[in-house]
Every structure is written in C-alpha cells, then in structure tokens.
Amino acid sequence: MASGRGATRVRGRLARLYAALEIPGDLVLDLARVSVLGAAQALVENHRGLLEYRPEAVAIAVSGGTVRIEGEELEIGVVTPEEVTVVGRLRRIEFERG
C-alpha cells in the first residue's frame, strides 16, 4: 500500500514538472485523452480495455481509473488497441479514480 502511495506521489510530482515544462501529459505519463464531439461522440485514446457496456452507460479502463460515459442509445463505434469511440446521445462523462 505504501509503495502504491509512493508511486502516486512520484507521479503527481512528475505531472507538476511536465506541466511546468509544458510537455503533454498523455505523451509521457501514459494518461488517457478524452475528446468529445458535441453530445454525439466521445473518443477515448490510450485506454486499457472495455469494462462495461450497456445502452445507457459505457465504462472504459484508463491509466489511474475509469472513464464512465452515460447517455442514451450508446453504441461502441470502434475499439482498437489505441482508442474506443462511443456514439449516441451523451449526457455525462466522468472520471473515477481507481
């Protein structure tokens, strides 16, 4: 547990350092990038797999947690090793620390 907390602390410091140097975090910290196109499409890059999929909700594992997308008539557009595209009527996107 302590080692996990230590790793989180190190990551937090690195994140502040990269932010100060204006280096994109998704490149060096393995962070997910979520892009939203209106309320119709969400693109999650750098994911770690699909956790849940229902027409009302999609959960996608990413580094440091889960991206949860809620809405109506949700469909998975494409799943590749790099990205997941979710289309439908999007209502809410939230990040759950895991």
Binding site: G49, L50, L51, E52, Y53, R54, P55, A59, L74, E75, I76, G77, V78, V79, T80, P81
Partner: peptide, 28 residues
C-alpha cells in the same frame, strides 16, 4: 464477460466496430 471479450480481441490487434448491447447479448 462480454466487455473482456471485446477488449481482448482489440488487444490482439483486431478492431471491433459497431458494437451494440442488448439485455442478454452483444453484437459487434
């Protein structure tokens, strides 16, 4: 474990597209 199936197939290098969920099954 349908989500695991889709993730595993994608990890193996095969894109999965047009996935739709129904109460008892997924089609993709």
């Amino acid at each position: 474990r349908l989500a695991e199936l889709v993730s595993a197939v994608a990890r193996a290098g095969h894109p999965v597209f047009a996935a739709r969920a129904a109460p008892d099954a997924w089609t993709f």
